[in-house]
Design a protein around this nucleic acid. Sequence first.
RNA 1: UGGGGCGUGGCCAAGCGGUAAGGCGCGGGGCUUUGGACCCCGUAUACGAAGGUUCGAAUCCUUCCGCCCCAGCCA
Length: 554
Amino acid sequence: MAEPDPPPTTGEPADFIREIVSDDVRAGRHQTVVTRFPPEPNGYLHVGHAKSICLNFGIAREFGGRCHLRFDDTNPLKEEQEYIDSIKEDVRWLGFEWGEHLYNASDYFDQLYQWAELLVGQGLAYVDDQSADQIRETRGTLTEGGRDSPYRNRSVEENLDLFRRMRGGEFPDGARVLRAKIDMASPNINLRDPVMYRILHARHPMTGDKWCVYPGYDYAHGQSDAIEGITHSLCTLEFEDHRPLYDWFIEHLPVPSRPRQYEFARLNLTYTVLSKRFLLRLVSEGRVRGWDDPRMPTISGLRRRGFPPEALRQFAEAIGVAKRESVVEYAALEHAVRDVLNRTAARKMAVLRPLRVVLTNYPEGRTEEFPALNNPEAPSAGTRPVPFSRTLYLERDDFMEDPPRKFYRLAPGREVRLRYAYLITCQEVVKDAAGRIVELRCTYDPATRGGSAPDGRSPRATLHWVSAPHAVRAEVRLYEHLFRQADPGAGGDLLADLNPRSEEVLAECQVEPGAGRLAPGERVQFERLGYFCVDPDRTATLRDAWAKVQAREG
RNA sequence: UGGGGCGUGGCCAAGCGGUAAGGCGCGGGGCUUUGGACCCCGUAUACGAAGGUUCGAAUCCUUCCGCCCCAGCCA
């Protein structure tokens, strides 16, 4: 569910980009602010993209402008329809809408081609017959300029002829490229006659077999921005060096508008890798179950994990936007998730590692129900009846035969409160032949119905529980970081840092009956355990599939 | 050693010459039928370093140091 739009921000701009936009608006440089989110459909979106989406759509919303969703589909070798579909779904899920402003760089291939011919006609672009290797060798190094291609000074006529024949499919892949004629001696490598078009006899998801020459990012991106009337083209830091080139094309072409590029630092998260290339590898090698595996930092993975879209937006706002490279602690993301879930997730009781408890003085066959708060943070959420009986399940972790100093929970001879029910006292520990605890025999105090004692005594601990005969068996999956290192790959090998215990499956859990009626995707808090989400993609029996969102405590 | 950026507490991040916001985390206390949440309090004489300008500098100048990005017919 998309949340309603947050109220427009007022007051001072929250970051340097909003400050720029704000100044532009105040100075009257634009009548409408237009931004764009330009993903390449070569993989699924991840939290890093969420930051960019929140920035671009957020600014558009705050300034009463609009944000386009534009697929940067200039490389048919890597792009697929599946990715296009997932990207749209993820952006919508995050709570943003592009309306009719859905575009593709490929929508502009005709225009881009015409402008390329225009540049050729002005002597500002030429066809180079050198191989990729030769171009690399003559590009120079970081400290020395490059050398002109022997084809650099062909006549306009010859260039035009060659370029048209490239388009016509006369040459094989890699035979020739179209290059912008700028400056082979530039200290900025991006200006050393960058490649504008390459020959690629490949079928494109949108244009099919219409083209066999495709524009590169540098040539396509800025012009696409100009065509769409983008006012502020926001991208990450690594494109800072490309800005002079971005501007060069804009200045030398009869484009309909004058967009400006601004760069900000991409998101880095501890215990996480945000590289589409690597995430693709995890998926293709089967190290995870798919792009939407709950352990993946993809938006679809986080969604399946149970992270609410509001939490991602809140997170994006909390971390800010700046130019300095930084690594945000995963705890900041978790905080946002807990903050949202604490006030929205319904509470349920579930026992992950059941320990049978028999209340020896509770009548056999008797059942009663206690009203339990659905959400203490939101009284309006009401209550639900939870069945109680003589035989219960308690969490094994909540009992210790020989409790250490600060352990407040159940122990032999000790009294604790069962949430919403009674105070009980452990009288006897039953073990099997192997010495393993199999059952606890306790007594309850009938006078403490509801959980409070008339004499005012109050146990240190309140435990969650489930009535054995009423419980629903469930599989619960607990998740940890995908990587065991805060900075995965620091040692040179990302795969070596994968956390072998990133997923733990508990098949014998017992949950209160109401938990069996939850809808797929619904998020709940199992009291004292953490937040969980009904896994929508699991087996037919929805109730036996849960994914852990947050562990409350180690 | 070319070019482009960046350096404020453990992690993010405000600050735009007038004497260091906020969030996360952490520590302490309160409250509590979730050891949760919530509420208090604490957590940078200090802003990469050194000089300089100024009544006054994290904010201006100089030099130095450190880190990141760029040599795809990827984006």
